[in-house]
C-alpha cells in the first residue's frame, strides 16, 4: 500500500537506534511482517533498497520474516489459520472470522558493527 512510507519509518527507527547506541554501520535489518498487514513484500523490499542508500544501513541485507495470519472463527470457537482477510474458516467454510494475528509490522533486530 504505502511501502515507501513504511521503508522511511524503518530507516528512521534504524537511525534513531544508531544515534542512541553509537554504531557506525548496519549489516542486516530483520523485519517481521504479518501476512494480514496489507504490506506487499516485494514492494517493501524494493523501497528498502532505495531508502537505505546513503544511510548508516547502506547495502544492509534486509531479512523479511513473514508472520502467518490467524483468525478467530466465531462459529467454531477456535483459532484458525488465515491467509487473507476475506478467506473463509478452513474448518466450517464460514466467513465469521475475525483476524487476530499476522497484522504486525515490526523492526525486529539489527546486525551492526
Amino acid at each position: 500500500m504505502h511501502e515507501m512510507s513504511l521503508a522511511e519509518s524503518i530507516l528512521e527507527i534504524v537511525e534513531d537506534t544508531a544515534r542512541k547506541q553509537g554504531f557506525a554501520r548496519v549489516k542486516e535489518v530483520r523485519l517481521e511482517i504479518g501476512a494480514l498487514s496489507g504490506v506487499e513484500i516485494e514492494a517493501l523490499s524494493f523501497c528498502m533498497d532505495v531508502v537505505l542508500n546513503g544511510s548508516v544501513a547502506e547495502g544492509a541485507r534486509v531479512e523479511l520474516e513473514r508472520v502467518p495470519g490467524t483468525g478467530w472463527c466465531m462459529q467454531c470457537g477456535v483459532s484458525v489459520a488465515l491467509d487473507a482477510l476475506y478467506d473463509p474458516c478452513p474448518r466450517c467454510g464460514g466467513y465469521q472470522v475475525q483476524a487476530t494475528g499476522g497484522t504486525e509490522m515490526r523492526v525486529k533486530d539489527l546486525l551492526v558493527e
Binding site: 519509518s9 527507527i13 537506534t17 547502506e58 515490526r106 523492526v107 539489527l110 558493527e113
Partner: peptide, 23 residues
C-alpha cells in the same frame, strides 16, 4: 566506506529493536 574495517576486527553485534514500524 564499507571497507573501513580491518579483517578479523569485526565488531558485529545484534541490537534488539522490537518496534512497530508505525509506532
Amino acid at each position: 566506506p564499507a571497507h573501513a574495517h580491518a579483517p578479523g576486527l569485526s565488531q558485529e553485534r545484534m541490537v534488539r529493536i522490537e518496534q512497530d514500524i508505525l509506532g
